[in-house]
């Protein structure tokens, strides 16, 4: 036994420290917020941390995504894998599970299974609403957090007690909102994640979480704190009397989404597959440049596009912002790569 948690136990008490070490926490998204909160939670000794992310490490991440280093960019490591490696270096006494996946309405409930609390560190509202639906359906508390620029906000959601994220929306956010190509500075990431992690620690200490939406703008030196229990909507489709969890309904069609501010489009097949990346690499090697294959993804230059193709058939195509064109490129790529190289899962 070492005394790595001594200072924390002095503050939280031995009982809470034990609960922390037995806790299973899910962090969805391990970009800026997820890097910050998973590092804090790993150092705190959370027994089992599950981190899910759909993306891989790029140069533009290093300015604020604290778990990643330059070699992760060179190897094009998926964030969930690079984060797992780093977190295990930080604390080898805990279990870290890294899952490379795009969270959607059909896989979220399975991902959440068995976790005591969920930290929302995604970069888009659409996924937050899916997490909100699943958390309420399964009765798992969930800590919303988001930040852009020098501004961030958090809100703890406790199913059956507090309003949910859906209650707080008087209209659905437009695409333009999540696709703001504004910048962000790292201090606000730390502050927002700090609020989220504090909520997790309080919950594990047995302290009830209050429905307070808290916001900070570090640059403008402004802050707000609003108690929102009044906004709980009895007719809410997610947490009301007759919930239908609208964001968990997802059709089986190929889903195509423009990635914010990156001149890129993500395509995700409605059916989940498992492709042989080596086989595809062999088939396409003559027609592409800068081919990189690791156990999780394949990256290459195909015509004027940079394609990152994941084992499950999902792809991110750079150099295109038109969803239709992205579909065409995807289909061409699959044809050359050989769609025979896949099995349904």
């Amino acid at each position: 036994m070492n005394n790595r948690y001594a200072r924390q136990s002095l503050f939280l008490g031995q009982n809470t420290q034990q609960r922390i070490q037995q806790a299973k926490v899910l962090i969805i998204g391990v970009g800026a917020l997820g890097s910050a909160s998973s590092e804090m939670l790993a150092r705190a000794g959370i027994g089992h941390l599950t981190i899910v992310d759909r993306d891989y490490v790029e140069w533009s991440n290093l300015q604020r995504q604290q778990l990643y280093v330059e070699t992760d960019v060179h190897h094009k490591l998926p964030k969930a894998i690079a984060a797992k490696q780093r977190l295990e270096q930080i604390n080898s006494e805990i279990i870290v599970e890294g899952i490379v996946k795009d969270v959607h309405g059909l896989n979220i409930e399975t991902l959440m299974q068995g976790h005591m609390i969920v930290v929302d560190a995604t970069d888009n509202f659409e996924t937050s609403l899916i997490i909100n639906d699943a958390a309420n359906k399964k009765g798992i508390p969930y800590i919303f957090g988001a930040c852009v620029g020098s501004y961030g906000l958090t809100l703890p959601i406790v199913p059956g007690e507090t309003p949910c994220l859906h209650c707080l929306l008087h209209h659905l956010p437009m695409d333009t909102m999540t696709c703001d190509t504004v910048g962000v500075i790292s201090p606000i990431v730390q502050v927002t994640a700090a609020y989220q992690v504090t909520s997790v620690m309080k919950w594990l200490s047995g302290i009830p979480l209050e429905p307070i939406v808290q916001s900070v703008d570090l640059w403008k030196e402004e802050q707000a704190k609003i108690h929102v229990s009044k906004l709980k909507n009895p007719h809410c489709l997610t947490c009301g009397e007759q919930p239908i969890y609208p964001f968990l309904q997802l059709n089986q069609q190929m889903k195509v989404g423009v990635l914010c501010g990156r001149d890129a489009v993500q395509l995700r097949p409605g059916q989940s597959y498992k492709y042989s990346l080596e086989q595809i690499a062999e088939n396409i090697s003559k027609q592409v440049k800068h081919l990189i294959v690791n156990p999780y993804l394949l990256s290459c230059q195909f015509e004027t596009y940079r394609i990152v193709f994941f084992e499950d058939g999902r792809a991110i195509i750079h150099g295109v912002s038109d969803p239709m064109l992205a579909r065409v490129v995807y289909n061409q790529f699959i044809q050359i790569g050989g769609s025979g190289q896949r099995v349904q899962v």
Partner: peptide
């Protein structure tokens, strides 16, 4: 007055 606005980003 306190105002909180929602953003997507993280």
């Amino acid at each position: 007055v306190e105002i909180v606005h929602f953003v997507g980003g993280g």
